[in-house]
Structures are given as structure tokens and as C-alpha cells.
Amino acid sequence: MVTDVRVSQNTSRSLLPYLQQANIQYTILISDLQKAIENQTGLRSYRNRRSLSGYNYEVYHSLEEIQGWMHHLNKTHSDLIHMFSVGKSYEGRPLFVLKLGKRSRPYKKAVWIDCGIHAREWIGPAFCQWFVKEALQTYQTDPAMKKMLTQLYFYIMPVFNVDGYQFSWTNDRFWRKTRSKNTRFRCHGVDANRNWKVKWCDEGASFHPCDDTYCGPFPESEPEVKAVAHFLRRHRKQIKAYLSFHAYAQMLLYPYSYKYATIPNFNCVESAAYNAVNALQSAYGIRYKYGPASSTLYVSSGSSMDWAYKNGIPYAFAFELRDTGHFGFLLPETLIKPTCTETMLAVKNITLHLLKKCH
């Protein structure tokens, strides 16, 4: 069992001797976290702010930049992209989604992709943007991509937790939750991945508003979760796969998250996961673990993946992207390209699996 902990300078002075005394092995992964944060966000001021036509997919982008990019694509690629909003966040920001695909026939099956449910996991939104870029750039040259965009629609939500993401840029790089206010406590936010109506606030979630895994006052209390759940419910017959991108652990997870049990279509989902992690590994040799979330990672109730599956979406996956803790949430920008490149192979693999067989 390995655990990553973040401790203040003062605490580390007493923690390290305690670990030594207790004979607990430890490794210092990041010795000066503040410096690491400043190195990542400090680059912004003098970075080349090129026009959107030269949008840089190998850097992290602020919410404002990502939404500007979405508007730009909506204008310049209207044949393949339609941008719309599913609602508004707690702080009143629009919840934008890109509908990607060739309008080849009125009804097509679809895949839902969301990134950034947890604010600090910046590699998620970076991947969502990368996916769209790859789709647009390779549509004419890659037969697999052409097939995907002709036969399916992709609903892509680059930043699910818009308020939290914005806050992670301006105030607290390690912010995880939404930004809703709690009347009884001074703490903000709810874990948007514990707020879904599936075994809500059971194991792996907290009732305390100050905790990182706070499940909220009731299911779908968060406007972001409510808006997406409403959209998915309305389109549940059309949507065949739900993919959610998180960090970090290098895992491909499928239901259930809230209990140790085998899903009815286990064989189909398991073989899709097995092939996807093999495809991913073929790029740089990065080996992902895969399996049911409860036994592969940990038990957690009220997750979007379980909810999607319970609501009739047969393929529901959560990716935990790079790395395994060396950089943690501060994955350097130099690793955006390899991470997205390998993940792209896995997503294409799952999508083509969907078109081939098992339903």
C-alpha cells in the first residue's frame, strides 16, 4: 500500500523522524512544492501568447483561454463542431460542450467525454483539447478517425468543474471541489465526483463540508452535476460510452466504484479495457492497471462513472492519467504531449471496439 501525502514544512520536521522510528519507508517526491507550483504557473507571464490559429496544445490553458478556443473552433470548423451549453455553474459560468462529428445522418450513437471534474487535475482538460485537435487534424487522413466521426458523435466537455478550475489557477493550485458556499460551515465546495445519485454518500465519501470528498447536501446539489446528469439522462439511448478523465495513477477503471461486484456486461468491458491499455502501452511503454474501480483503486460512492453505467450507458470508464506520484498533480508541460498521445490510442481503441461488437 502506497500513500502520497502533502505536508507543510513545519510538519515535515516532526513527520520524518516519526516515520524513521516506526520503520516506515518513505521517499520525498517533491521537496519544495511551492517552488514547483511557481515553476509551472510562473511561465505564463512571458510565454508566447500566440493567436488561436497557433494554439499551443503542449501547455496548460486557463479557463478563459479554453473557452476562447472553443468559440474559435465553433466558428472555424462548423462542419464538424457545434458548441452549446448544458447549463451554468454555481458562480454563473456557462458549462460548454463541443458536439464533434460529421452530420452524416440525423441519428447517430454518441460517446460522452468529460475532463476536469476535479479542479487540480490539469492534464484532464489538456487531454480533452488534444482529442479535439487530433480529430480535426486527422479526419481526412486517418481512416479510423474518419470512421469514428462519420458513425458517431462525441460530446466533449473540456472543463466540467469550471469554477474550481478557475480557482486552481488564481488561488489554490491543489483545489479539488466545486466552489458552492456552505451556509453552516465556512468551507466551500463539493466533490463533483461524489455528488451523483448512485449509492450517494456511502463508503469513500464524506458528510463533512470541509473534506475533499464531501458528497454535498443532497445528490445533484451542484449545478454542474445536475446539468450534466440532465443532459445524459435526456440522451441516454444515444450515448453508448461515458469516458471521464482524471489524474493521477495510470489506471483505466470501470464500474463498480461503490461496491465489489461484477457488472453484467463484464466480458465486453473487460476486453475493451484490456485492448485499450495495450494500445496505450504501445506508444511509450507506459503500463496502465485496469479493472473495476473498487478493487483497482478504492471504493467510492456517488461517482459519475457508476451513475452513467446505472443509467444505461453500457461502457463507462474513468481514466487516471499520468503519473504515479513523482509529479502528482503538477505534471510538467513537457509530459502533456506523450500523455495525450498514448491516451488518444486508448480512446480510439475503445471507440472502435464500440463500433465493432458488444452492446
Rank of each mutant, 00 (worst) to 15 (best):
H72I: 09
K237Y: 13
M148G: 00
T138V: 06
L280T: 12
A308G: 13
S282R: 11
L43R: 10
N193I: 12
K146A: 13
M1I: 08
C268W: 13
S85G: 08
A308S: 15
A283F: 14
F154N: 03
E121C: 01
V269E: 04
A273L: 11
V190L: 02
D79R: 02
F329V: 09
L98M: 11
E333Y: 08
Q137H: 11
S294E: 03
W175M: 11
T178I: 12
H82Q: 11
W169P: 14
Y214S: 04
R233N: 13
I336Y: 09
P106V: 03
E224L: 15
M83S: 11
F266T: 13
A229D: 08
T343K: 06
R49W: 04
N195W: 07
Y57W: 13
K177P: 03
F266Y: 14
S282I: 09
S85W: 03
A283S: 15
H118I: 07
Y288A: 01
T262S: 12
M305S: 12
R44F: 12
N182T: 11
T141D: 01
R179W: 08
Y254P: 07
E134K: 13
S14G: 15
D191P: 03
C215H: 06
N311F: 07
T3G: 04
F154T: 02
E220V: 03
S53L: 10
L297G: 01
Y254Q: 01
S304N: 03
P255Q: 03
I313L: 05
S221N: 10
F167I: 04
T3C: 03
L331A: 03
K147A: 13
Y256C: 02
P17L: 12
N182C: 10
L52T: 05
A247W: 01
S180P: 04
T11S: 12
G285M: 00
K109A: 12
G325D: 04
V7Q: 00
V269W: 03
C358M: 12
S303C: 13
E270Y: 12
M157R: 05
G325C: 00
L355R: 01
L252H: 05
G101W: 04
P17W: 09
F327K: 01
P332V: 05
R194A: 07
R179C: 08
F127Q: 05
S221D: 04
H71A: 08
E121I: 04
V59Q: 09
R44L: 14
A241I: 07
Y248S: 09
L335H: 15
Q67P: 08
N267P: 15
P209I: 06
E121D: 00
C201A: 15
R13L: 14
C268D: 14
Y248M: 07
G42Y: 06
M344P: 04
S300M: 10
